[in-house]
């Protein structure tokens, strides 16, 4: 097969079952870079951006093919904030949340949000139907997930209780259109703060120790915030590469997490 533009999910799933060698195409903002610069030649392509089921966004279910441009104007504050930082307006008109999840880049800007709110990944296959995977069981390594070859990511499922406040920030040396050196989401719910970070480990991570520490504080003092930032810096597992250094990423992780907690408190 060369190329199939699926108009609905069952068509896409049938094609996926029949052509396990074929690749999925949503916004194309990752796959086409491979095609253009690495001369990657897909053995076949199943385009899903027009599948109705994947475009639906209702309540707790965000269809996988919802674009960043739509998310930018959506009701989830941190998701809208992060959507606005992804690539350029042209990229956001094409790229999708599901694509971000599927690519599973350590720097994927949508991923800390999914981790911070404890979202789940809904996937489907022709043979096994729908499967729902916890985010921390979905992302397993650098660009590595537990999505099976015959599956398609269909939606991101939000928890029943969404945080009261949620804030996102991302560090890059350019003020727009930049891959994150560190990205961070802090969500504040009934049960306290949740802190998730990206670009500081092979997969998006939660700073559980830091969460535990700050959530144990009855009133959050400056000293507590300083200690919180220190723990976040300690808890992340960044590397040094051409985009930043391990030391800076640790430092920035703590600074961002602290600032976002402050923003949540002020909200």
């Amino acid at each position: 097969m060369d190329f199939l533009a699926a108009g609905d999910l069952s068509t896409a799933l049938d094609a996926r079952a029949e052509h396990p060698e074929a690749e999925l195409l949503a916004g194309g903002t990752d796959l086409m870079v491979e095609v253009n610069l690495s001369y990657h030649r897909p053995a076949g392509v199943i385009a899903v951006r027009s599948c109705e089921e994947l475009l639906e966004w209702e309540g707790r279910r965000i269809g996988a093919a919802v674009t960043w441009a739509r998310l930018e104007d959506g009701p989830h504050r941190a998701l809208a904030q992060l959507a606005r930082t992804i690539g350029s307006p042209q990229i956001r008109a094409a790229g999708t949340l599901g694509g971000n999840v599927a690519t599973a880049s350590p720097a994927g800007d949508g991923l800390p949000w999914i981790a911070a709110i404890d979202a789940e990944i809904e996937v489907a296959s022709q043979r096994r139907g729908t499967r729902i995977i916890a985010w921390d069981e979905f992302f397993v390594g650098v660009k590595e997930t537990t999505l099976a070859p015959d599956e398609i990511i269909t939606a991101i499922l939000l928890p029943e209780h969404m945080p009261v406040s949620q804030e996102f920030a991302k560090v890059g040396v350019r003020n727009v259109m930049v891959i994150a050196m560190v990205n961070c989401v802090v969500a504040r719910g009934e049960d306290g703060f949740r802190v998730a970070l990206g670009s500081v480990a092979p997969v998006p991570i939660r700073a559980y120790r830091a969460e535990e520490m700050i959530n144990a504080e009855t009133s959050i003092s400056d000293a507590a915030l300083t200690e919180f930032a220190r723990i976040v810096s300690d808890e992340v597992r960044p590397i040094s590469d051409h985009r930043s250094t391990e030391a800076y990423r640790r430092h920035a992780s703590g600074v961002l997490a602290r600032r976002l907690v402050e923003r949540c408190l002020a909200a």
Binding site: M32, L37, P89, Q90, I91, A94
Partner: peptide
């Protein structure tokens, strides 16, 4: 690779980098 906008075209009302459109 969608980082410069020099190939921008409007497809069905959306401004896209045509280098990233299959």
């Amino acid at each position: 690779q969608g980082e410069c906008g020099s190939c921008s075209v409007i497809v069905d009302g959306a401004n896209l980098c045509s280098c990233l459109v299959m």
